[in-house]
Design a protein around this nucleic acid. Structure first.
Length: 119
DNA sequence: ATACTGACTAATC
DNA sequence: TGATTAGCCAGTA
């Protein structure tokens, strides 16, 4: 099995529903690598197509840690707010309200996709 | 091979 | 609460 982590990251990010956010650890988990949260950040930063909705990925605290990595600090926040996501003071998002609450079934579907696509 | 670097996290204090 | 620490692991040099 191939296990192209970066392609998986790109795909999983693309599956984050509009109007919700996911955490790095969550993406890593869904990619089949639960301890690769940092690599997710690295992937989003430079190893992934710019077409993926990377603005929907925040850290485990709901903080927009990637803000500094977007073209302008604040562009991530703008994109989130454009989806109806409330960004509070200190560039924080409530995971309780906007977090992606994926199901086990979702994880299984993703896994199956990876097998089929051989990535 | 070795060392260092992170869009990270969970545990501890 | 907030700050520190210690694991984490694929890239990069």
């Amino acid at each position: 099995m191939k296990m192209d982590f970066y392609k998986r990251v790109a795909y999983v990010c693309g599956q984050i529903p509009y109007g919700t956010v996911a955490t790095y650890g969550q993406i890593a988990l869904l990619c089949g690598k639960p301890r690769n949260a940092r690599q997710v950040g690295y992937a989003l930063n430079r190893r992934t197509p710019w077409t993926v909705p990377a603005h929907r990925v925040v850290n485990a605290q709901g903080h927009l840690s990637g803000a500094g990595s977007f073209e302008t600090s604040g562009s991530q926040q703008e994109q989130l707010e454009a989806e109806g996501i409330t960004v509070e003071e200190g560039q924080n998002v409530s995971l309780k309200k906007f977090g992606w609450h994926h199901t086990l079934e979702t994880a299984l579907e993703l896994h199956q996709y990876f097998l089929d696509a051989n990535i």
